[in-house]
Structure formats: C-alpha cells, structure tokens
Amino acid sequence: MSGERHDVLDGAVHPSETTRLFGHAAAEDFLAQSYRSGKGHHAILIEGPQGIGKATLAFRFANHVLSHPDPADAPDRLADPDPQSAVSRQIAAGASHNLLHLTRPVDEKTGRVKAAITVDEVRKAGHFFAQTSGTGNWRIVIIDPADDLNRNAANAILKILEEPPKRAMFLVLSHAPGRLLPTIRSRCLPLRLEALADEDLRKALSALRLDPGPNADAVLAKAGGSVSEAIKLVNYGGMDIAEALSGVLDASGPAARKAMHKLADVLSAKDSDVLHGFFTGHLENTVMMRARSSALSGDLDAAERHARLASDVQERLRLAQAYNLDRKQTIISLLEDVKALG
C-alpha cells in the first residue's frame, strides 16, 4: 500500500520503481548487515538533504527485507531490485500488503497537496498493523518525510514507535531531523546520508537520461548534490529562478522592488508548485550560506539573524499554505526580510 504519486518530477522515477542508487554504498551495506545480524533496529531515521536518494534507499531496503523475510538467510549486500520479481512488482505498483508509504495527501476539494501529513494518514498505519499479515512477513512503514508530520500526526506516530508491533519496521525519512520531535528521534537509529559527489550525481542523471547540456557545471554546482534539484534546474527552469533571486538580492531601490514582484508573479502562477518549492529551498540555502559567511567573518549577531530567518522560511511558507494566504505576498515578505538583513 503506497502513498499517492503526485509529486514525481518530470524526468524522474518514483523511488519505489527506481532500480539503481548511487553514492550510498556504505549506508546500503550497513542496513543489509544490520538486518542479517538479526539485531536491526525497528525504526531507522534516514536523514540528509532533500533529493539525494533517501526514499530510494528506503524502498530498496524494504524490497530486500520483504524478499528475505528471514534475516539469517538474507544476503549481506543490497542487490538492485529485480523488476520481474513479485515483491518488486507489488512495491512498484503500490500494491504490497506489507508496505505502507505515508506522505502528504492530496486535498480532494482543492486537488492540491496538503501542507502536512495529517493524523488521518497516520491512522492508516494503525489499521495497517492491525491487519493480519497473510504471509507472516514483515510490515514496513516508510514516512516520507517525517518533517511533514503535523503535531497530532507526530504524536500518533510516536505512540506506535513506543510500542511497535511484532515484525514491524519504520523507515523514517527526514531532510531536517533537528525539527522532529526529540522523542521521535530518540526512538530511531539515525543513518546519515550525505549529498552526492559530482561524479555520483552525474551517474544518477545519466541513469535518468537527463542531459544538463552546456551548463552542466553550473547545474552541478547549484544542485548541491541533489538529483531532484538538478531535475528542477534542467527541466523546470530552476536556473532562471536562481538567477532571478540573485538579481533581486543584488538590486536596490525601485529596481529591486520591480524584480521582486516579477519573481513573485512567476512563483505564484498556476501550476508553479515545483518552481515554488525549488525557490524556497534555494532561498533557505542562500540565507544559511550568508549565516555561515557572517559567522566566519566574526559577525555573530548577523550570523544568528540569518540562521533564524533560514530556519523560519519553511515554517512561514507552511503556514501560508495551511491558511491559504496569498502566495505572492508571502514571497515578497520573505524577500524583503532577506534584503533587510543585508
């Protein structure tokens, strides 16, 4: 049973269908060997930047576990999933009775993805575990990402983590684990993934048959080791958005105001959700880089102000979506705050 596949980027493959993973061999070996030992943790927090393969790793490991339900008989390495195997076909189709993928649902009234994973989604996990597993196999829940759990949903997940059912496994994904409830983090085994090196990112893009073109070096530099960011840069006009943001931050006076409104118009247009997501992540990273620069130069007050704003970006945007606030005005407000910090 899988979450709705509403957020697969043009040019990407859903993690449940992806057969190759680049750059995380050590993490794969750790998971395989931990499982084989029979002493693996029931909840694993897979953390790291967005778009580097956390969900793909989670589905690969789920495939491995469901294909080898007896840990003692499992290989000590994760093999590429066999698309022809029954387990792989079920997982790829979102039809596995032993796997539940929790992610943000679509609002039936608006047709847009909700701002958070709600407690109603988490209740699906309760029903999922309450069902008798017909094969006696493991039952695995992938929370993708746990950062999107609202407070009630997080507390509901916590209750299950505190008393997990037998042969239950949680793969908890997080782009920013510091924002999770400390009690959730304390009940998970952390597994940190790093951003992809340029060579691994090139291989991942090649596997997707994505050609960065003549701007390949610039794409790699701005992607920050993230496949999803590279896709947005190449297929969604992300390079133009990144350049427009730089223009806004470099401009002053009426020119800055005009550039700000022009950028906000693009990002608040219909069907601009992907670009809007790219922009917010890029803005957050830009402000955080300024915080680091200020800290290195010894201006700790400026570093703290920038760091506070960087951590505030996603929350302000989440609230704006939750309360259906004007997206354009929210973007302009954020840009004004960034420029005010200098």
Rank of each mutant, 00 (worst) to 15 (best):
T56V: 13
V219N: 03
S85N: 04
R167S: 01
G237R: 15
G94S: 08
G224V: 07
D107I: 06
S311E: 15
L100N: 04
G11R: 14
A58E: 12
R151P: 00
L78H: 02
Y35S: 02
A27G: 08
L325M: 10
R89V: 03
D80V: 05
R318A: 04
I157P: 00
A197K: 09
D7F: 14
K203Q: 06
V287D: 09
V106Y: 03
R167A: 00
R36E: 09
K159F: 04
R89F: 05
D82K: 04
R209N: 06
Y323V: 06
A86R: 12
F129P: 04
A168V: 02
M289A: 08
A146I: 09
R290E: 14
G253H: 11
V106P: 01
A43H: 12
G3L: 13
N324D: 09
K232F: 02
R327I: 06
A264Y: 15
K203R: 12
A291N: 08
R185L: 07
L99H: 05
R36V: 08
I140C: 09
H64G: 00
R327N: 02
N215R: 13
T118E: 14
G213V: 12
K339P: 07
K109S: 01
A307L: 15
N235H: 14
T135K: 09
H306T: 00
H282M: 12
L45G: 02
P105Q: 05
G298V: 09
H97Q: 11
F128A: 03
G53V: 08
A116R: 14
G48V: 09
Y236V: 03
M289N: 10
P165N: 02
M289V: 03
G136I: 06
A146L: 12
T118L: 13
G136N: 03
A79D: 11
L149R: 04
S37D: 10
D312Y: 09
